[in-house]
Computed example of a mutant assay.
Amino acid sequence: MDISVVVPLFNEEESLPELTAWIDRVMQSHNLSYEVWLVDDGSTDNSWPVIQRLARENEHLRAVKFQRNYGKSPALNVGFRHANGDVIITMDADLQDSPDEIPALYRMITQDGYDVVSGWKKERKDPIGKTLPSKFFNFVTRKVSGIELHDFNCGLKSYRRNVIKSIEVYGDMHRHMPLLAKWAGFRNIGEKVVVHRERKYGYSKFGISRLITGFLDLLTLMFVGKFGKRPMHLFGTLGTVMFVIGFITALYIGGAKIYALTNNMPKTLVTDNPWFFISLTTMIMGTLLFVTGFLAELVARSNPDRNHYLVETVLDA
């Protein structure tokens, strides 16, 4: 099968008939074999009855229904598990992503050799209250991750099959799929300018809170990617540095006290110096960080997947 289209959705009953018909026209006109996985993330409207009717009319449609709303990342993860295409394309169900982009996204994977292609909504049809925070978020993510993409949050993306079978999407990590792919060893990540259409039905299901959770997820990914299997390297290093700084400061304060006593200088208590408490607090924090790293290392070594690595090729004589 050439393409699997994975569409997470929540309360999109009005847009589904038009979306699925549009996808079918594009696939038929380019002679592409395909399947569409509609993942209903616990919709409270008539999305599921609409999906059932559409599936009876179109043999290419597949569907999964959650019992309740879990979020976009779990919906994508389930869709990825079921996808059978050589190229997997994700898109939103609100008709702001154009299915006309699918053939070009497919060719960039199969002909141009990309592992991941992310859409770039260069001319967005959203209010400035959404576009400005999004630009700031993309700038920070670009600098932190080292991936030169303009729009990490675009729902329209294409993946080589082995990419989505090698990564796990959870929480709200769908915003950082290119980074997940990079951590898994897929570094050929491209970008394509895509048309962003005005929302025709319904309303946006995401608020300003997604920016906060997006940054938190980015920090989580950076930590897990670098120190997930060796947490002691982070906590142990920070703890050792802080303890040494506190210890040296305490030695300096003690030396200054001895110098004052031996040279008949005015007598003061060590506790009168605020740096004494700063050095003491620093040593305690350093000790706690070191112990945290030690405990985290024990947990990491108890993980059954601690020696799980993605192998691309094996040459065995």
Rank of each mutant, 00 (worst) to 15 (best):
I109T: 10
T110K: 15
Q111N: 11
Q111E: 13
Q111K: 14
D112K: 15
G113T: 13
Y114N: 04
D115E: 14
D115V: 10
D115C: 09
V116D: 02
V116Y: 04
V116R: 01
V117N: 01
S118L: 05
G119P: 01
W120A: 12
W120S: 12
W120E: 11
W120D: 10
W120C: 08
W120H: 09
W120V: 08
K122D: 11
E123K: 08
E123G: 03
E123I: 15
R124M: 15
K125I: 09
K125D: 12
D126V: 05
D126Q: 09
D126A: 10
P127Y: 15
P127L: 14
P127V: 15
P127G: 15
I128D: 12
G129L: 12
G129W: 12
G129H: 10
G129A: 11
K130H: 10
K130T: 08
K130R: 14
K130F: 14
T131D: 00
T131I: 13
L132D: 09
P133N: 07
P133T: 04
P133R: 04
F137H: 08
F137P: 00
N138S: 13
N138A: 14
N138V: 00
N138K: 08
F139A: 13
V140E: 03
R142Y: 01
K143T: 11
V144H: 01
V144F: 04
S145W: 04
S145P: 05
G146V: 07
I147Y: 07
I147F: 07
I147V: 09
I147W: 08
I147K: 07
E148R: 15
E148Q: 15
L149E: 14
L149H: 13
H150E: 14
H150A: 13
D151K: 03
D151T: 11
L156F: 05
L156E: 06
L156R: 05
R160G: 11
R160Y: 08
R160M: 08
R160F: 07
R161I: 02
R161D: 05
N162L: 07
N162T: 12
I164N: 00
S166H: 07
I167W: 02
I167F: 05
E168P: 00
E168M: 08
V169T: 02
V169N: 00
V169M: 01
Y170W: 10
Y170R: 05
G171Y: 01
G171V: 03
G171C: 07
G171S: 09
G171A: 10
D172F: 10
M173I: 02
H174C: 02
R175V: 05
R175P: 00
R175K: 14
H176M: 09
H176E: 03
H176N: 03
H176Y: 08
M177N: 03
P178L: 04
